[in-house]
Amino acid sequence: MTTPPSAGSSSDHPPPLDATPARALGDFIRAHRERLSPQAVGLPPGPRRRTPGLRREEVAQLCGVSPTWYTWIEQGRPVSASADALARIAVALQLSRAERAYLFELAAQRDPAEPDPTAADAPATLLETVQLVNAPAYVLDRQWNALAWNGRAADLFVGWLDGTHDRNLLRYTFTEPAARELIVDWEIRARRLAAEFRADSIRHLSDAPTRGLIDSLAAASDAFARFWASQDVGGREGGRREFNHPREGRVVYDQITFKPAHREDLKLVVLVRE
């Protein structure tokens, strides 16, 4: 975090305004400051206020930062903001999980509350959970590789979780002919899957494994390249999933996805048969 110069120094003049993402960051922070009441953070309402919400000085006090530095950040001036300072701002402004993620994206910083991207080991209890579920269940990592699955999932996902196939859900969907046969309304589901992965991967698009996966899929699948280029973004949704199973015929499931509290880069997916 950059400390503002002291009064009377030769650097008293603030940095010039910059019409860059810094401005978007400042606008976002200011909007959330203005919608937060003093009572919501345990402060007395005090005398009549000229501006809505909290004052800048109050937020700075809550964050433990200089009022001048906070003002410059809000004004979109080109001053640096550490991940720790951003985390304190997120807490002070009572941002939701999605708002906090957006804040860090605007600042091009990694949220210190996120799991370590180098932590490759999934919790053993999570991997063991799939064996306790009496329905198709599997665990995905941040590139959507299957880390664990049960027998029912292997029986359902022909060409993916059975045998010795590539365990990546996206590669299976877009490059395996068996997926087009299995998944009902493949075009719709595949487009949706690409949009969900775009939303899910935004925080680690610069990671080499994620970038490599996207590039290889775009080269191997015209459909993926087209869907990815569309810039569609969609949250991971559950709901009805239909399959044309080679042995069981048409089967219908209701899909639900869970994220562990401390490893939100992982997903436990369960399909309950209707």
Results as ranks from 00 to 15, higher is better:
Leu127His: 07
Phe104Asn: 06
Ala154Asn: 06
Val65Glu: 02
Ser6Phe: 09
Val130Phe: 00
His32Lys: 12
Pro4Trp: 06
His13Asn: 11
Thr71Gly: 02
Phe243Glu: 00
Trp149Gln: 05
Ala22Gln: 13
His165Val: 04
Ala219Cys: 05
Ala208Tyr: 03
Arg56Gly: 12
Trp186Thr: 00
Arg192Asp: 08
Thr51Ser: 15
Leu147Ser: 04
Asp111Lys: 04
Leu25Ser: 12
Glu34Pro: 11
Leu182Ile: 01
Thr71Asn: 07
Arg88Met: 11
Gln39Val: 15
Lys259Trp: 08
Val251Ile: 12
Leu193Val: 01
His245Asp: 01
Phe174Cys: 07
Ile89His: 07
Leu86Asn: 01
Gly64Thr: 15
Ala220Arg: 01
Glu187Val: 02
Gln231Thr: 12
Pro45Asn: 14
Pro260Gln: 04
Ile202Tyr: 08
Arg152Ala: 09
Thr129Glu: 02
Phe227Gln: 02
Arg167Phe: 09
Ala98Ser: 14
Leu36Tyr: 09
Ala31Glu: 15
Leu140Arg: 00
Asp232Gly: 06
Thr129Lys: 05
Glu105Arg: 15
Pro115Cys: 10
Ile256Phe: 04
Arg49Pro: 01
Ala195Thr: 00
Arg48Pro: 04
Asp222Cys: 09
Val133Met: 13
Asp222Met: 10
Asp141Trp: 06
Gln255Lys: 10
Arg33His: 12
Ala81Asn: 05
Phe197Asp: 04
His204Gln: 12
Asp111Pro: 12
Asp254Gln: 12
Pro44Ile: 15
Phe258Ile: 07
Arg152Pro: 00
Ala154Pro: 05
Leu266Asn: 03
Tyr253Ala: 06
Gln131Ser: 11
Asp200Ser: 12
Glu114Val: 03
Leu213Asn: 03
Leu271Tyr: 01
Ala40His: 06
Leu182Thr: 01
Pro21Gly: 08
Val233Gln: 13
Ser201Asn: 04
Met1His: 05
Gly163His: 12
Thr2Trp: 01
Tyr253His: 06
Arg30Ile: 10
Leu217Val: 02
Ala101Phe: 03
Gln143Cys: 03
Glu248Asn: 05
Thr2Ser: 13
Pro45Thr: 12
Gly42Cys: 15
Asp18Cys: 10
Glu128Trp: 14
Gly163Asn: 10
Arg263Gln: 11
Glu74Met: 11
Ala98Cys: 09
Val251Trp: 00
Ala220Asn: 03
Ala153Thr: 02
Arg189Cys: 02
Leu103Ile: 08
Ala90Asp: 02
